Simulated assay, not measured.
Amino acid sequence: MGDPASVLRHTARCSSLDTLDRALTGCRACPRLVAWREEVASVKRAAFRDWVYWGRPVAGFGPADAAMAVVGLAPAAHGANRTGRMFTGDATGDFLFTALHTVGLASQPTSTHVGDGLELRGVRLTAPVHCAPPGNTPTASEAETCRGWLSAELRLLSPRLRVVVVLGGFGWRMLLPALDAAGWRTPRPRPVFGHGAHVVLPATADREALHLLGSYHPSRRNTFTGRLTLPMLVDVLRRAVALAEL
């Protein structure tokens, strides 16, 4: 799996999310990302020197029959790249899971490690890039290569998927072509991202209408400056829960 075409060929053979997740965690298609995630897992951060880092691609997390998805950016170097679970082990995850718990989508407001008892209800968490990128910034070619995994995940979720909440402009830009590849029809010109944005993709012969909701990303910069507050994110998630009929 060394280029977008080979990733697409591989994902096309995955008939379940379990199969897709297992295949994804073995992906080595992007040399720069492979080198970085493994270097971080070896060098570690001092606060986590006793941890055995995951150091691999991080699959989506949540039930296979989810009516709602939350799409972020990529795993954090010392967050999900350490713990092996999306949005787990860093301040961004703490903020997100507090909001998810508030609206009844998460069984607890914290997400610290695999096996901590956390369960999600009706929602799956994923990202357009599944490896931690240097500087939290994947290249355009890395994002294009990884998009095949997101398209396949959306395709497998499609029988029940009704709402996608997108965290940040990068996720929004990456999601739209992934939805096209998964069988939905997205508008031209592309809808503009913004906090509170709401776009409805029409139903097709084999898919229900899909609601896209935008939210600022719960990064430390956004939450520390107040650009995104907990009530703001909770409001978007409550709208998503209502639209998904959860």
Score class of each variant (00 low, 15 high):
G89D: 13
A91Y: 14
T92E: 09
F95V: 03
F95R: 01
T98Y: 11
L100I: 06
L100R: 03
L100N: 03
H101L: 00
T102G: 00
V103Q: 07
G104Q: 08
S107F: 05
S107T: 09
Q108E: 13
P109I: 05
S111T: 00
T112F: 07
T112N: 12
H113G: 02
D116T: 02
E119H: 14
E119I: 15
L120E: 01
L120Q: 07
R121G: 10
R124F: 06
R124A: 01
R124G: 01
L125D: 13
L125T: 10
T126Q: 04
A127R: 08
A127V: 07
A127K: 08
V129Y: 08
A132V: 03
P134W: 08
G135W: 08
G135K: 14
N136I: 09
P138L: 01
T139S: 15
A143D: 03
A143G: 12
T145K: 09
T145I: 13
C146P: 02
C146Y: 00
C146A: 15
R147D: 15
G148C: 15
A152F: 10
E153D: 12
L156N: 01
P159T: 11
P159I: 01
L161M: 12
L161I: 12
L167H: 01
G171V: 03
G171D: 12
M174P: 00
M174S: 06
L176Q: 09
D180T: 12
A182G: 09
P187N: 07
R188I: 09
P189G: 14
R190H: 01
V192Q: 06
V192Y: 04
G194I: 10
G194E: 14
A197E: 08
A197N: 11
V199T: 12
P202H: 03
P202Y: 05
P202K: 11
A203E: 06
T204L: 02
A205G: 15
A205K: 08
D206V: 01
D206R: 02
D206H: 04
E208K: 14
A209C: 14
A209P: 05
L212G: 01
L213F: 14
G214I: 00
S215C: 14
S219H: 11
N222P: 00
T223Q: 02
F224E: 15
T225I: 07
G226F: 04
R227S: 11
T229N: 02
T229P: 02
M232W: 04
V234P: 11
V234L: 00
D235H: 13
V236D: 01
